[in-house]
Simulated scan of single mutants.
Amino acid sequence: MDTRIRFTAKEDLYNKAKELKTKELPSDMFSLFIDAYHTQIKDEETNRIKKAVIYNIVGIDMEGRKSLVSYYIYFGSESKEDWLQILNDLIKRGLKRVMIIVSDDFPGLSHAIKNLFPQTDHQLCFLHMQRNIKKNMSKQDAKQFYEELTLIKRIEDYEKAVMKFEELCKGYEKKYPAYIKGLLNKKDNYFNYKKYPEAVRKYIYTTNVVENINSRIELIRANTGGYFQSIKTAEVAIYVTVSRIEKNKWKEPLPLVKSALYELKQMFVKKFYGQTQFS
């Protein structure tokens, strides 16, 4: 009896997990946060443990509520094809307009966003950019660059912040040509969050919200033998993790986002309909 109860409970969780990634989506969202979590999952067809990628997508809707919009699991490594499939699936399920998408600098994602959500701002995770400075510069140069970047981050105006960032980068261009070229090519994407009301900027300059989910899933993986026993097991882990967060921390709209909703909705209408006020 106990075994049957446990099996039924697990099947119920799995069915709810499947519903989560097939449910109809709202047509309009304030923001999406996308991250790729690399793990290992046992392939039931071959009975082999394989590399896999779990893509979790968290959203904030136009009322300031946060939720897991969807998740996707693919065997292998992250690819451009994955991103196109993911964004197309979101569109198929009803999503039409997103003000800003926040992600790390994943190959192929920027291209997919430009093609499928051409009016959407793409914010690259500012914290990841900061962390990568140490990996690409000498200790002394990284310290100086980081200090200057911290001052630029305090600038309120988007265009001024981008201009100052460009000036900072060009000061290191001869010494680190490849690295600096990459930063300059994406300079706008690191500061898109500054286009938005000050109250909401803390939520949309980093992918921390979805990385937090990934770290919790990673803990489950580590405690169950170092890999997920099947895709089904991984999906249940995702559902259990997120449902707990949604019932607690995400139960109510984010206060600061809620306080800026009127301004955000005005921005939304202007961005997607070319108007400055509601009709």
Results as ranks from 00 to 15, higher is better:
E148M: 09
L149C: 01
T150M: 15
L151I: 09
I152A: 07
I152H: 03
R154D: 13
R154S: 11
D157V: 06
D157N: 13
Y158D: 03
Y158T: 00
Y158H: 13
E159K: 10
E159V: 04
E159P: 01
E159L: 05
K160N: 10
V162H: 05
V162Y: 04
M163C: 10
K164R: 14
K164C: 03
K164F: 04
F165N: 06
E166N: 10
E167A: 14
E167W: 12
G171A: 06
G171K: 08
E173L: 10
E173F: 02
K174A: 15
K174S: 15
K175F: 05
K175E: 15
Y176D: 03
Y176N: 06
P177R: 07
P177T: 05
P177N: 08
Y179Q: 09
Y179G: 02
I180L: 08
K181G: 14
K181S: 13
L183F: 07
L183C: 11
L184W: 00
L184G: 03
K186P: 06
K187P: 00
K187E: 06
D188P: 00
N189S: 14
N189P: 05
Y193I: 06
Y193V: 04
K194G: 05
K194D: 02
K194P: 03
Y196I: 01
E198I: 09
E198N: 06
E198S: 08
E198V: 08
A199I: 02
A199R: 13
V200M: 05
R201W: 07
K202W: 07
I204T: 04
I204F: 01
Y205W: 07
Y205M: 00
T206F: 02
T206Q: 01
N208V: 05
N208R: 08
N208P: 05
V209W: 08
V209I: 15
V210L: 04
E211N: 06
N212F: 04
I213G: 05
N214I: 09
S215E: 12
S215G: 07
R216E: 15
R216Q: 15
R216W: 10
R216D: 15
I217Q: 06
I217M: 07
I217F: 07
L219K: 15
L219D: 15
L219N: 15
L219M: 14
I220G: 08
I220L: 10
I220K: 14
R221N: 01
R221I: 03
R221E: 10
N223I: 01
N223S: 14
N223M: 08
N223G: 06
T224K: 13
T224V: 12
T224E: 12
G225C: 11
Y227L: 11
Y227I: 11
Y227G: 12
Y227W: 14
F228W: 08
F228M: 03
Q229A: 14
S230Y: 10
I231V: 15
T233N: 15
A234E: 13
E235N: 05
